[in-house]
């Protein structure tokens, strides 16, 4: 199979074959990170810029390590949110970066659709969406699916519960697209204020009670709750949120015996996930992070080198 895409913006229009191909590639590159000398020359001479308009530790570091293990030259740009208001426009920034001839630009932005502006504008650069507003976060979903496939050998037919702030979550959207394309059954649960309108049309089930969503689940994915949402009355208190939506040992028991507990991080201990669960035997949270590097190596390779 050949990977034909110029950019990776979102999983919405991906095929099952394409996703499997990316995951296969990631699996084959995973071993590099376990070597004594964790570097291959594959992307030598390629320039990868990460342009982050939102703070990020995990994703940015993961991409940077991925690029470096493939011998690409990796440059990080952190744009402060204030420059968005007063400084250079995104289009001007894009044109300036283009003038320095990078090969791949990895972008995170708080505004949905921002990476799409770059993808349309720059004809010779590949754009990877590292999260755009509440729209998509395709690399997170791909690394989640890589982890599921690795642990369960398949995704098709599994029951996945996705719990928390669905409305504001790009991870939720990419995972809903990705998992349903791969044949999983997706059950959602979260506070009514955080359940976006008509989301059932995406081919998922929506549940009011967390217990219904996680019953017999093969996978439980917890989403991070942004505590500042309380100010907008998106939930009344952390205490009440945890009471209804925290993944506790009692609740985990309702899922399948070999359930996998996942979280895109960073976790709020005691809010959406009980520390016992986060650190317990069902949790694959840190394996997600490990797979993140391999998955991002695969994407960089497919976009810049694998042609």
């Amino acid at each position: 199979m050949k990977f034909e895409r110029k950019d990776i913006l979102g999983l919405k229009d991906y095929s099952r074959d394409e996703i499997n191909f990316i995951l296969d590639t990631a699996e084959s590159l995973k071993e590099i990170s376990t070597r004594k000398i964790k570097k291959v020359p594959t992307l030598r001479g390629k320039t990868v810029i990460s342009l982050f308009y939102e703070p990020s530790t995990r994703t940015r570091t993961s991409f940077e390590i991925a690029a470096k293990r493939l011998s690409a030259d990796a440059v990080n740009i952190t744009a402060s949110a204030s420059s968005v208001v007063k400084g250079e426009t995104l289009i001007d920034t894009a044109r300036n970066l283009e003038s320095m001839n990078p090969d791949i630009i990895i972008m995170r932005h708080s505004a949905a659709g921002a990476p799409h502006i770059l993808a349309r504008l720059l004809k010779h650069q590949s754009i990877i969406n590292a999260g755009d507003g509440a729209h998509e976060h395709p690399t997170q979903s791909l690394l989640d699916m890589m982890t599921i496939r690795e642990k369960r050998g398949k995704i098709d037919g599994l029951r996945v519960a996705l719990i928390g702030d669905i409305a504001h979550s790009r991870v939720a959207r990419s995972n809903i697209y990705g998992l349903t394309i791969m044949g999983a059954e997706v059950a959602l649960c979260g506070p009514a204020m955080m359940m976006p309108r008509e989301i059932d049309k995406m081919g998922v089930t929506v549940h009011n009670r967390m217990e219904e969503a996680i019953r017999d689940a093969d996978i439980i994915m917890m989403l991070r709750i942004q505590l500042e949402r309380q100010k907008n009355n998106m939930f009344p208190s952390v205490r009440e949120y945890a009471k209804l939506y925290c993944l506790t040992p009692d609740r985990v028991k309702m899922a399948k015996k070999n359930v996998l507990v996942m979280h895109p991080g960073p976790i709020n201990r005691g809010v959406e996930i009980d520390p016992q669960i986060a650190d317990g035997p069902y949790s694959v949270i840190l394996e997600q992070v490990t797979n993140g590097v391999a998955l991002r190596m695969a994407l960089l390779y497919l976009l810049a080198g694998g042609k």
Binding site: D132, E136, R197, E198, I199
Partner: peptide, 13 residues
């Protein structure tokens, strides 16, 4: 507009 499209795009409706 708040509806399926806003849900898809992750834009507040």
């Amino acid at each position: 507009n708040e509806g399926y499209t806003s849900t898809e795009l992750g834009l507040q409706g």
